[in-house]
Design a binder for these strands. Structure first.
Length: 243
DNA sequence: AAGTCCAGCAACCGCGTCGCA
DNA sequence: ATGCGACGCGGTTGCTGGACT
């Protein structure tokens, strides 16, 4: 049994995208908006899997992408976010407008890991690399304290911890106080509907996961200012990290 | 100039999650 | 309550082009 394939593999192209395919995808999304990835390839006349189309659009064709090298400020922001969030590339990408999760993930693996090692820090734990034996120690205590977390109204509400709600190991691999709220439009997100309305919602969301997840915390980089369009009403959302 | 190595990046794959019937 | 379909995410793979011998 198992999961059915996401598409008819026998009749789909794989590998690098051609200019013509790109153009077809861009034209289709310009006309109809994002969403319904499963039906998009057929509708757009593409011999591609829906997932492939989505990836191509999100990682390469989206008009709001910022191409080019990462700035030192972005580097530091990525490092700090990674220390807070772990390998949650989509969340990290959400705080870097114009950057994609794939791009950040690749950049992390190729550049930042080395940079941290050069600084004598373990890229996984962000703790100092001391000795081989120390590297075998278990990861640091896993507890993600989310000071204010709400998923339904876009406002910060009762205090809780992510660990309480989502006890998966990943989430517990970081130690901080972190406030997460959702921007108002997020509450209207309905995934499986292909209505014109949902398409508009998706269009408005395109490339702006940054606004979808509001991390009300203060980075040294951003000291004194709250990053992003935070509508968290709490003044004490903060993140602590020991470097 | 040709061959090899390797870093960087685009794309794929499999799984988890969510929403609907 | 449950099964299924669709989407999104993170890990991995493989291609490409530049550096090096």
């Amino acid at each position: 049994m198992g999961r059915s394939p996401c598409c008819e593999k026998a009749h789909t192209n794989k590998g690098a995208w051609t200019k013509e395919e790109d153009q077809r995808l861009i034209s289709y999304i310009a006309a109809h908006g994002e969403g319904c990835w499963r039906t998009l390839p057929k509708a757009a006349g593409l011999l591609r899997c829906g997932k492939s189309c989505r990836l191509r659009w999100i990682n390469y064709l989206r008009p709001d992408l910022k191409r080019g090298n990462f700035t030192p400020e972005e580097d530091e922001l990525i490092i700090k976010l990674h220390s807070l969030l772990g390998n949650k590339w989509s969340l990290i990408a959400g705080r870097l407008p114009g950057r994609t999760d794939n791009e950040i993930k690749n950049y992390w693996n190729t550049h930042i890991k080395r940079k941290l090692i050069g600084r004598g820090l373990d890229p996984l734990t962000h703790r100092p690399l001391i000795s081989p034996s120390a590297a075998q120690e278990p990861p640091r205590p896993n507890k993600l304290n989310v000071a204010e977390y709400s998923v339904d109204d876009g406002k910060c509400s009762s205090s809780t911890t992510v660990e309480d709600k989502q006890p998966e190991p990943d989430r517990r691999s970081i130690n901080l106080e972190l406030s997460i709220g959702l921007a108002p439009f997020q509450s209207g997100t309905q995934r499986s509907s292909c209505s014109a309305e949902s398409k508009m919602v998706r269009q408005s969301q395109a490339g702006h996961t940054a606004a979808a997840v509001c991390l009300c915390w203060q980075l040294g980089l951003l000291s004194g200012q709250r990053s992003g369009n935070c509508n968290c009403q709490s003044a004490n959302g903060l993140a602590s990290i020991d470097y």
